[in-house]
Write a protein that binds this DNA or RNA. Structure first.
Lengths: 233, 233
DNA sequence: ACGGGGCATCAAGGCGGCGTCAAGGCCCGG
DNA sequence: CCGGGCCTTGACGCCGCCTTGATGCCCCGT
């Protein structure tokens, strides 16, 4: 479960806390960078540009507060301070130096994760892009559930839409009758005739000449395939 | 020293804490709104659109968590929860409901002020987004809870308003029946009929010809979507 | 040449989704 | 205590989609 989630830089010199954080974070999909000193932390920060920082104070070669201040000079990535010092003055100094949150040890895993979610919620305010599949002249916008062929919009019934998206997600590859039936009609479906009827409907809507398909290709005796590039003929 | 600084809405029912907060905030230039109940808080929030919220849990007429969730539906203004409950579960719930920070009572004035500075630093960093959604001829002012169609104001019931804002926040995208039910009627709702009835009411109010919808489009077998661009036909 | 299996097409029918109307109950304000 | 607004719930009719069967074609093997 490594390689998908946000990249977090953990700056911490106590091995025990390190292990604790590593377990908590990696089990929730985060990718982790670790630094034990201010020097290491700055190198990793500039080279990898992590999405969020977990910062212990009291490092062997300098103060975490200064590190926070320097990091804040070139990025708005959230910084969460983890510290054994619970004095109010320490918190105020860290927060005013650029930290976004301050947790006093000991703290629970769930609180840490919740505060991480808050931090990431802030930094990801930007709009996310929509997933779109493009195959030849076809364009399928999954979020809008909109299908266009050469720019023109086509209305599809639920079954036709499921058929087409299934084929499009495996563009170029042959899907057997059995695979198609299981994906579109559920694991118990057996009537291969369903596929033929709905494939004909689909061809009426997206093929120039439904009698001579250029996109929805029949593979006799095997299944169907959505052509993903022009072929001779 | 009133009239210059950021407007903060204090939601708190204990008079003693109220006095404490009032003194701490006003002496640092904040302008203050006070509410002792969820009801009051929502009225003041929508009418004055404060820059930041200080929210006590355990109010006489409802849960502060729900208040946070509802406020978060139409603004990104920071919410700082102040609570005597120190359990980790309480913190996680509040933060996941939309709160940006959580202070356990008792806390120091300086820490509160420092965390307020962090919150304001965040909200002023990004482009101050207006709490207004415009989709085609529709204009929804979330702070005023006001809906206009081609300039004319329309009165919506609470359910209709939630339906419309849900669709508007995902303008153009298809929302499934399940998504709509979960967002508007809560995670346990199953009656798809609710959606149909209220969608019909909504159409009566915002469609020119409710029998031929141009805005609230039905996606048969899937759900609904709010059209965000003109289409031929 | 003939027969059979796989495939395409068409049409009929049933069924479920959808829109509409209306009655009943709940909550809140007067 | 009464009244109005709103949500829920049920009934009903329509339309569209899926299913299902019939028919014919093409390709192949015999």
């Amino acid at each position: 479960m490594n390689g998908t989630g946000p990249l977090v830089l953990v700056v911490e010199d106590e091995p025990q806390v390190c292990r604790f954080l590593r377990a908590a974070l990696s089990s929730h999909g985060f990718r982790i960078l670790e630094a034990g000193t201010v020097r290491e932390a700055e190198q990793l920060a500039t080279s990898h540009n992590p999405e969020v920082y977990l910062l212990d104070l009291g490092l062997p070669d300098g103060d975490g507060i200064d590190l926070a201040r320097r990091v804040r000079e070139w990025t708005h990535a959230p910084i969460i301070v983890l510290s054994a010092r619970g004095r109010e003055e320490d918190k105020v100094n860290a927060l005013d130096a650029g930290a976004d949150d301050y947790l006093t040890k000991p703290f629970g895993v769930n609180e840490l994760l919740a505060r991480l979610r808050v931090a990431l919620r802030h930094s990801r305010a930007g709009p996310a892009e929509e997933p779109v599949i493009e195959v030849g002249p076809l364009r399928i916008d999954l979020a809008r559930r909109e299908v266009r062929i050469e720019g023109r919009e086509v209305r599809l019934t639920p079954t036709e839409y499921r058929l087409l998206t299934l084929l499009a997600r495996h563009a170029g590859k042959v899907l057997t009758h059995r695979q198609i039936l299981r994906e579109v009609w559920g694991p118990n479906a057996t009537e291969a005739h369903y596929v033929r009827v709905h494939m004909a409907e689909l061809r009426k809507k997206i093929e120039r000449d439904p009698a001579r398909p250029q996109l929805l290709i029949t593979e006799p005796g095997v299944g169907y395939r959505l052509r993903d590039q022009l072929e001779p003929g």
